[in-house]
């Protein structure tokens, strides 16, 4: 067997990865140190100028706060709901579980774009069914513009995100629950432990690693999520629901400032690289445990 064989086999995949993923990362760094316009092309070197302009932009800080809120709140709620559903489904084994776990997973299976579209329609101020129900129930006096109001836009997008993401947590928790040795529960039952105590002393500790993986992964993915915000609000109204990935597009392809866009891209990359570092640490701990 020739020594070069495995490298030849890897070559096409490596070329793809280098061209589409590694080279852009480097080019991004170069961009971020220059004045680059989408229309006029690259101009001169500006050193850290683009980064300064990003950090001096109050919109960056608003987006940063929004992204953090969206990622943290969205992930926490998804985990809570996912855990609730998993416990409910785990209690009833058999065919019923299969059917319902299928139904509950649907929001995750359909495209995020469809999820965003469906929620946008549900929340439509004139013809949306949510306004209609709230008015019918006497909770609202007139149609409310959920996505057109700076106070509620981000919250609504976050709820849509939770709707789309909780099934992932549910499936992972369900797998985690089914892996807990039954003997632990039997022993606890013999000792006369209440359901409450069994949950806190057996179920939760056994789900600790799944929970930490989900938490880190959920935050990374939501931090990275462009789709839900773009489809539902495009970051509006008046940037009230702007998040960092959408802001990259705004800088680069709406204001044609590729240099500033690249600087922001690099900032996002560094933020996510540190989050991923945490994720790898969590995984390593999980494997050694």
């Amino acid at each position: 067997m020739k020594k070069s064989t495995p490298y030849l086999l890897l070559l096409p995949a490596l070329l793809f990865t280098l061209f589409v993923l590694v080279y852009p990362l480097v080019q991004n760094l170069i961009n971020s140190a220059r004045e680059v316009s989408l229309i006029r092309g690259a101009n001169g070197w500006v050193g850290a100028g683009n980064y300064l302009r990003v950090f001096q932009d109050s919109l960056f800080w608003v987006s940063f706060r929004n992204t953090a809120l969206y990622a943290l709140l969205g992930t926490l709620l998804s985990l809570l709901i996912g855990m609730g559903f998993a416990l409910l489904l785990n209690a009833r084994a058999g065919k019923v579980t299969t059917v319902f776990s299928f139904l509950y997973t649907i929001p995750w299976v359909i495209s995020p774009v469809v999820a965003g579209f469906a929620w946008k329609w549900l929340l439509n101020d004139h013809f949306g069914i949510i306004n209609y129900w709230l008015i019918s129930a006497g909770l609202l006096r007139e149609n409310y513009t959920w996505l057109g109001n700076p106070g509620t836009a981000l919250l609504c997008v976050t709820i849509a995100r939770v709707w789309q993401f909780y099934p992932f947590a549910m499936v992972m928790f369900l797998a985690g629950l089914q892996a807990i040795p039954q003997e632990q529960y039997e022993a606890a039952a013999v000792d006369g432990a209440t359901a409450f105590r069994r949950f806190f002393h057996i179920t939760l500790p056994n789900l600790r690693t799944v929970t930490s993986v989900l938490l880190v992964l959920g935050v990374i993915w939501s931090f990275n999520d462009f789709n839900m915000v773009f489809v539902m609000t495009r970051g509006g109204p008046i940037n009230a629901s702007m998040v960092l990935p959408v802001l990259v597009r705004e800088y680069s392809f709406v204001f044609f400032d590729l240099g500033k866009g690249s600087a922001l891209s690099t900032v996002i990359f560094l933020l996510l690289a540190s989050l991923s570092f945490v994720y790898i640490k969590v995984l390593a701990k999980r494997q050694s445990a």
């Binding site: 061209f19 590694v22 990362l25 931090f223 990275n224 590729l258 891209s265 994720y279």
Partner: peptide
């Protein structure tokens, strides 16, 4: 081998927003 595997693993975690501008230029 391990380095290549890691490269593929890491490239999967790459945020789309941080490669999109050069990809567009390319």
């Amino acid at each position: 081998k391990r380095a290549f595997l890691l490269l593929f693993l890491l490239s999967q975690m790459l945020p789309g927003a941080s490669v999109i501008i050069p990809l567009f230029q390319l």
